[in-house]
């Protein structure tokens, strides 16, 4: 539970790392980032620069070949036609077992033209949709169909225009893109105009994760014999461990009886028998000391 939360935390943390460094994370296949000309790299001071040497090592060791590919992002304003909006570039890793995966996604967005800015203003005014699309296959775009996603234009403006892509891939196919503002966008959406007409983009590549395996209690299957073993176990426990609750009172009773007997003997023997009595006590050792305690 907590480890899962830790994982999520680390995920979101490394996610934060991702969008302000473009070189160091080259080897991280989970996240790519926007290399937009508008965004000054590492401008945000409160994000420490990440250092992830472990994954880099892993990937250099694996037997795979890389090739560079590019695919473009199209956008549309309301119901207008789609036009070029930017380019994604990624590394295509071909694994020895035949699979192909996309890694090291980078995105460069074309700056909005005057006309596009005007159109965007209109969208903001009418609270309409800003739509984007990606090819469903990166090798032979557009593949079977385009992946479309849209967002209410009023969600995007922040300082500049902020957008967040989560691209779900399966090999060389893109299944879906979660597109929207990086933060919240509560209803009713307020009309606010961006200060700068430049996009600040965050991109993440996501692959399918594996389902947790069904717990298999193999020992339960063998439980028959082991169960019997467990039943035998109590016999193996030491005598003391088993019967201490009887032994202690028994011991106390015995001791009580002995001390009483000794006292009686002392009284009988009186002053004369002092020395041998003492001796006896001494030879009794522990018992003697115990008896002594009692006498005190």
């Amino acid at each position: 539970m907590s480890s899962l939360r830790l994982f999520i935390l680390s995920l979101t943390l490394s996610l934060c790392f991702a969008f302000q460094s473009d070189e160091l994370l080259l080897d991280d296949d989970e996240f790519g980032l926007e290399g937009g000309n508008q965004q000054p790299p590492r401008s945000d001071p409160h994000f420490p620069s990440p250092s992830t040497p472990a994954p880099r090592k892993r990937f250099t060791e694996s037997s795979s070949s890389d090739s560079k590919i590019q695919f473009s992002l199209h956008h549309a304003f309301g119901d207008s036609d789609f036009s070029d909006a930017g380019n994604f570039s990624a590394r295509l890793k071909t694994w020895s077992h035949g699979g192909q995966t996309l890694t090291k996604l980078r995105f460069s967005r074309n700056p909005l033209t005057e006309e596009e800015q005007k159109k965007f203003q209109e969208l903001l005014q009418t609270d309409d949709f800003y739509r984007i699309r990606l090819p469903s296959n990166v090798l032979s775009p557009p593949g079977r169909d385009y992946i479309i996603s849209s967002v209410k234009a009023r969600c995007l403006p922040g300082e500049g225009l902020e957008e967040h892509f989560v691209i779900h891939t399966e090999g060389i196919n893109i299944l879906a893109v979660n597109y929207g503002a990086p933060g919240a966008c509560p209803y009713p959406r307020q009309l606010k105009r961006p200060v700068r007409w430049s996009f600040k983009s965050h991109t993440i590549l996501k692959n399918s994760e594996q389902a947790p395996r069904t717990p298999i209690f193999a020992e339960d299957v063998l439980g028959g014999e082991e169960g019997e073993g467990e039943l035998v176990k109590p016999v193996e426990r030491s005598f003391w461990a088993k019967y201490w609750m009887y032994l202690i009172p028994l011991g106390l009773i015995v001791m009580n009886a002995i001390t009483q007997a000794m006292n009686m003997a002392e009284e009988q023997v009186g002053g004369q028998g002092g020395a041998p009595g003492q001796q006896q006590a001494g030879s009794a050792g522990q018992r003697g000391s115990n008896a002594g305690v009692r006498r005190r």
């Binding site: 967002v151 209410k152 967040h164 929207g180 503002a181 919240a184 509560p186 389902a211 947790p212 069904t214």
Partner: peptide
């Protein structure tokens, strides 16, 4: 605060089989 689908969801999923 109102919930909107346009906000970026921060969800975690837990599963077991």
């Amino acid at each position: 605060s109102p919930v909107s689908s346009y906000s970026r969801p921060e969800v975690i999923a837990k599963s077991q089989s």
